[in-house]
Design a protein around this nucleic acid. Structure first.
Lengths: 237, 237, 237, 237
DNA sequence: CATGAATGAGTATTCATTCAT
DNA sequence: AATGAATGAATACTCATTCAT
């Protein structure tokens, strides 16, 4: 048994130890990264991009500024990561099962999905910060628009197309109609939130959204509608 | 004749021409104020609030920073003045004469008025900056929401109520319906502009707005609609 | 007399006052600039470029850092200005009148000029800092080499050429010979100063320089030299 | 078998192979130390002391920063080690065999030795960094001056004294004369290299050095010189 | 013994606001 | 009234050094 052999053995050993160490470190690192993202989101939401101070984010995340910079190259990239993270976490899927559900119910479910995504993730506040940074970070805003707005539209359109195919909605320009619907809903869900900090879901939100859907159904619904909501329908989350 | 003496003379002169000079001075002052506002708007629109530098605004307005501060107490109040000025200048009146015009035409005229106000005054860009400053200037944002959004809604509602009274629209909750209409229109007119710098009126904007109005008329129109636009109607600016 | 006329008059007056004001301001500004340069030189000489802190320079110059940046765009340009200023102030002219002076005396005077320039302006210390920054500011070093080293060589060469023409020195490759002489002198004047802070003119400096010149004269002198220094010669500053 | 057990086993193993392992470890350690020194020299030469980053040195040496600090207490001591290492490696011996060689040839050989030492080890670049750090590491600079400059001078002087003793050179103050010679040579070999990064031996370097030696011989040579180079002489490395 | 993540003190630079003239 | 120089507080980012594993 020569030194080399010993070394090889020790090398393997080291390998397994290092693996453990590496795993440990990775987990610690991920934890810190997550803490930083959380803190950063909080501060960015509170102060907006420009007024947010890296030092405060670091303090909030309970790390040093240097650690912060180990994880994120710059304030800009930290902000981008916060936004992406928010959109990843708030899985912006608009998918709902249409089987055995009326068009109205399907749309309601989708709207409910959307509103909870907007409110729970404080997406309105985030949206405001993104919008604020359009002059200095136009690419980020474009990405958000793509991933958050347009992507949802296409998901929604797919569903609406199915409803049309199923005969629940009249054949029409679904591309335009879903934007009409989205516009109406945003008027209540997003718009006021852009103008005030901490806009939360008002009590009558559901009723307002229902009204939007009613309007939509009046235009595009296949059959003469029964006024009011049929009680068989349940709203899923 | 030394400088001091000269100065005294100037003082006497002031006395004799008090009114005229005062007027003159006032006009100079007003001119400067206007120049500052113009420059500030430009810079704020270009850079957003935080990145806009008072020094650059002063340079752009061709005054000293001290003069700038003579006219406006702080960056914040300058920004507020810029916003108010923009809203004053872009007289956001939604008033249109409904006499002898169909409901559809009236709504079209209103929409046209609104879109030109938004695009010509670069209100979308301004809106973005206001929204950006919600965390630090919530009052301003609230004011803007009041004066720019809600105020227009009530004007619009008044008109719609008249149309209902005239029998052109079915009786309904006009308060809700105009928000639906506004939401649909904003989806095309305002929303994309929030996400990109220099969003200008696209070519198919009118068609899109017409589609919104058609949707609206399908729900609230009193009579079965003739499809298409009746040619008697003219769209005012 | 109309307002305009008044204005013109006042304008002229303003002009003259402004001129005084402008002059005043300019002088204050120049004073501050000079103070900054002085302080910066001191700090740069003391700490070297990298360790020198802009804040300390500002404190030393009794101005704020912002004022410092009003005068100089960056640390780098401040340093460049310090160097240029040093070379401007220490007018590095090697001109000496050769009329009625022996070659030996002329060379001695030149050497004396050179050494006082090096020592009085603390040029050795400055040289060290410039050399230190070669990796990050190669252009500055090149400039210094041009203006400080090569320029002096050509001045010296012109003089030596005159001495040759006058018959005081043998005809020879003066371009090479002055570098030999310069090299010998620098060995005593510059070289040790590069390796220690605050190297000042040692007592035996003159003797050492004389030895260099003697060596030079042995090679290039026209006539068999009288050993030692003839007392008619006086060394100018 | 868990990791802990394995570790214990390794401990036992260490016991049985103590010497061999220790040797092995030592050699590994030495290898790393050498790698660090090499990397550090490269980085210091490239960036200068202040701009050189310990992290980059570690990366370049393929070790962790902690390992780096195991070997060297601080950046300062690492730099000192780099300098010492450079001077050790570039064995700055000026020793040449004078037997059977003319004074001119001996000096030429010495000069050739010196120039290759300067250029091959990138000593000019190193010198620059040392000089740069005079304010913060005066002792190091003094050491370098001692070991690199003065030490060579005494070696050279010993040789010159021999040449004098042999009758090849006139009796004279050899202490001064070798500094004259050194000064002349440095003017071409070292001086320009201080002012520019990557100054390499120019094509005409040998001719220039020869000219210096010729000048020297004109002053101190014992016999009337034959102009040009006698072909019996060979220049050693 | 080696690692790489973490640190906190330090630095250049900017900017809203004020002041002497 | 107008100027522009001056300010000082604030901020993003870096780096030599240490520590838990």
């Amino acid at each position: 048994m020569d030194i080399k052999g010993t070394k090889t053995y020790c090398g393997l050993l080291e390998g397994s130890l290092n693996l453990g160490l590496a795993t440990y470190r990775k987990s610690v690192s991920e934890t810190k990264r997550a803490a930083i993202l959380k803190a950063a989101r909080e501060i960015f939401l509170k102060d907006g991009y420009s007024r947010a101070a890296m030092a405060e984010i670091a303090r909030e995340a309970d790390v040093s500024t240097a650690t912060l910079y180990k994880h994120f190259d710059s304030k800009e990239s930290l902000f981008a990561a916060v936004v992406q993270d928010a959109y990843r976490e708030t899985d912006s899927s608009m998918f709902v099962d249409i089987a055995g559900k009326s068009a109205r119910t399907v749309l309601r479910n989708i709207a409910a999905l959307y509103t909870s995504q907007q409110f729970e993730g404080r997406m309105n506040d985030l949206l405001r910060v993104v919008i604020a940074e359009v002059p200095s970070a136009p690419d980020l805003a474009r990405d958000v628009y793509q991933n958050s707005v347009l992507d949802r539209y296409s998901q929604l359109q797919a569903t609406v197309d199915e409803l049309v195919a199923r005969g629940d909605l009249r054949p029409h320009d679904t591309s335009a109609s879903i934007r009409h619907l989205a516009g109406m809903v945003k008027e209540f869900v997003v718009w006021p939130g852009l103008f005030s900090l901490g806009f939360t879901r008002p009590d009558d939100m559901d009723a307002k959204i229902d009204a939007c859907i009613e309007a939509y159904m009046k235009i595009y619904g296949a059959r003469p509608q029964a006024s009011g909501t049929s009680q068989e329908d349940t709203i899923g989350t």
